[in-house]
Write a protein that binds this DNA or RNA. Structure first.
Lengths: 134, 134
DNA sequence: CTGTATCCCTTTTGATACTG
DNA sequence: CAGTATCAAAAGGGATACAG
């Protein structure tokens, strides 16, 4: 196995390593529904509330509103309200939101390439007598 | 979290989108503590239970055990038990686990580069009169 | 159409004490 | 040292109804 150090060898174990540095961004973009929202807005362009809901399928309006608000507050999407009747609101990805796409693309590729291996590992583990994770 | 389709229910088979394949891998590697565990094992090499706990700081033994079991079952880390007294157990990243490092590295870089912009967006939003996300 | 407001349940996480 | 067991707390979501 190839061991790739994150920090210079002389700094290993000297408290230079901060294992939680990615946690804030993980909390921001990997809560439920956020990734699909960002991906569909990246791929489809501006969408209305009901269009996003239809793309996601089973999300409830309360949760969808929560997620859209958070993404808007974080500057990852914009919300534009048109003064029409019936009301029309369009959500659009920002440049900041678009800058996350390499992460989603990598994870998508990784999934295609490696999830079968994960499935094999799970089957092997489950047949090994090791305790099931809670 | 379950798999979230990225295809409207009435457009299955006709859309150019595939199912949201990133959701399972997100569930796997972005639950609490898992990313720091993978990162510290990538950076520091094999570590004992108590060493990982010390790196993470505030994790409780119950939760740490859960996470280590899940990562082991998914094939991202290995667990080696030495028949010694007092007991010694070492956890080590696998090649499969190591293959996720580009994702963590990207998110770390993205955090360094863009989180200040997120902070600015949050302040602007909070001063704009828009409703606070729940 | 675009959300809000409630209620409630499940899952997740933590605190603490204990064992081989 | 390396975990388990038990209890409690909290957060995250979902179902449903309703409002502007």
């Amino acid at each position: 196995m190839t061991q790739i150090p994150l920090v210079p060898a002389d700094a290993v174990g000297t408290a230079e390593f901060e294992p939680c540095s990615v946690t804030p961004v993980i909390d921001m973009i990997f809560s439920r529904w956020t990734t699909p929202i960002l991906r569909v807005l990246s791929a489809e362009g501006p969408l209305r509330f009901s269009e996003i809901r239809d793309w996601l399928g089973t999300v409830t309006p309360k949760v969808l509103t929560q997620r859209l608000r958070q993404l808007e507050r974080d500057g990852l999407i914009t919300r534009e309200e048109f003064g029409e009747v019936p009301p029309r609101v369009e959500y659009m990805i920002t440049d900041l939101g678009l800058s996350l796409r390499p992460a989603f693309d990598f994870l998508g590729s990784w999934s295609d390439e490696h999830m079968p291996q994960v499935e094999v590992a799970r089957l092997a583990y489950d047949g090994s007598g090791r305790p099931r994770p809670a």
